[in-house]
Amino acid sequence: MSVLATAVFNLYHPAHTVDWEFIHLSVANVVVIGLMLIVFFLAILLPFPGAARRAAARRGGGPS
């Protein structure tokens, strides 16, 4: 009970699940999959720090 009292979320219940046809996933796993998709697209879209400076340095022939 002391563990439950210190938990951020109440874990004292069966896991919530998402059911769609034959797909049966816990909500926790759905959240992780969603986070992975978000991070994947952000990794493609967000500029990498210093990338533009390196490209400009290469075009100008200066030190990178």
Binding site: A43, L46, A55
Partner: peptide, 14 residues
């Protein structure tokens, strides 16, 4: 001691 410029992308970090 160096990498191609296209490596400067977040997708290459994982």
């Amino acid at each position: 001691d160096g990498q191609p410029t296209y490596v400067a992308s977040w997708i290459y970090v994982f």
